[in-house]
């Protein structure tokens, strides 16, 4: 997709800065959901897992790919769901009901 590793490195450094800028603004109130949510994002490795599991000749690398798909999906689904569950509990002051 991109041939030059220097470009990927540039992207890496810039996104680290973006990440630090955004995340430093998250209040301590939400640090646990931040952690589980960002954890789910690290499940992006599912992309690699899906590529690996579909390698042409089924070898041990397909087995690796399969295991990677399972673990990455645990990470993605578990992470986003549990974050959603937590965030649903954070509600503002009850003044109406």
């Amino acid at each position: 997709m991109l041939s030059d590793p220097a470009v990927a490195l540039t992207v890496l450094v810039l996104s680290l800065f973006v990440g630090i800028e955004i995340i430093a603004k998250v209040p301590p109130l939400l640090h646990t959901p931040l952690m589980s949510g960002s954890n789910a994002i690290s499940g992006i490795t599912i992309v690699g897992a899906l590529i690996a599991v579909t390698a042409e000749n089924p070898t041990i690398s397909t087995a690796f790919g399969f295991a990677a798909v399972v673990f990455a999906m645990i990470n993605v689904v578990g992470g986003f769901l549990v974050t959603n569950r937590m965030l649903a509990m954070f509600r503002p002051k009850r003044d109406d009901k």
Binding site: L12, L34, G48
Partner: peptide, 11 residues
């Protein structure tokens, strides 16, 4: 992957 991974790394 590079972008998402580094966001999580930074976090």
């Amino acid at each position: 992957l590079v972008i998402s991974g580094s966001l999580v790394g930074a976090s």
